[in-house]
Simulated scan of single mutants.
Amino acid sequence: MAHSSTPEKTPEGDKERAGIQSVEVGFGLLDVLAKAPGPLMLRDLASAAGMSAAKAHRYLVSFQRLSLVVQDANTRYELGPATLRLGLAALSRLDAVKLARERLPTLMDQTGHTLALAVWGNRGPTLVHWQEIPLTMPVSLRLGDVMPLLSSATGRCFAAFMGHGGGYDKAQPMIEPELTLSRKLGRSDLPCTPVQVQAMLNETRAQGLGRVVNVLLPGISGLCAPVFDADGHMVLGVVSLGSSATFDADWQGPLARALRAFAAQLSFDLGWRGA
């Protein structure tokens, strides 16, 4: 009896192919949530993903069980803690982050202050590593937090250096909403006009650091130094922060010099040969 050279389809094989397709379809919902500026209603989420609300809901039920998606009090959907863990794990595997993490203990011994690492995420500068010095003032920041561009040392550093010297500045579209809020609140410690923003960015570039003193958090000061890759792109921010009573935020102080030196050496080791 002759045997066909074409493999016979089996129900099990069909299920396997259908399962793979389901993963791809379901990922569309996660992708929409990742790109959205905030939580979405079911109908809006389903429409953006190109599927019916009933079909989207079935996926979302499973995603909620896995903590990939959460639902707020207004029945809107948002990415859940499991997606944050996956994202942080992926970001932490970047060479720059890995190299910086290995060296942070030495910098902490040298400076005596809490340190953090930040990278540019889909919503802005995101904390991906945190190393707190014992017996210091607790700071209400955590892994995964997205730092504001105008009121944090980290944000100012990314806003100043990420698109500087060519290329599209991803920070620029995010600055205007913060400017609007700053004007609305009447904040005298923050830039309120584009001219003031430019002056702040120029100072940050001239000093080689982002800096805030009692701006984002009362009683807390911070500095952030940029790290560049071989192509001159800012890939990482090295952050130091602490109580303003003991934190030396002087542009030319020992802490500022230590951060600049750390970031410069890390940039050099990543291939950057710029000024």
Rank of each mutant, 00 (worst) to 15 (best):
A2S: 13
H3D: 09
G19C: 10
G19N: 04
Q21C: 04
L29S: 09
L29F: 04
L29M: 14
M41W: 12
L42C: 10
D44V: 06
A54E: 15
K55F: 15
H57D: 15
S62H: 15
L79A: 00
R85N: 05
L91G: 03
R93A: 10
L94T: 12
A96R: 00
E102D: 14
L104Y: 00
P105Q: 07
L107W: 00
D109R: 13
G112Q: 07
G112N: 01
H113W: 04
T114N: 11
A116C: 07
L117Y: 07
R123W: 13
L143I: 02
P148Q: 11
C157W: 03
A160D: 07
G167E: 00
Y168V: 03
Y168T: 05
P177S: 10
E178S: 05
T180S: 04
R183A: 08
C192A: 14
V195W: 14
V195C: 06
A199Y: 02
T204F: 01
Q207L: 08
P218D: 09
G219L: 10
I220H: 05
F228W: 07
H233I: 02
V238I: 11
S240L: 08
L241E: 02
G242Y: 06
S244T: 14
D250V: 09
A256Q: 01
R260G: 08
F262V: 00
A263K: 06
Q265F: 07
L270P: 03
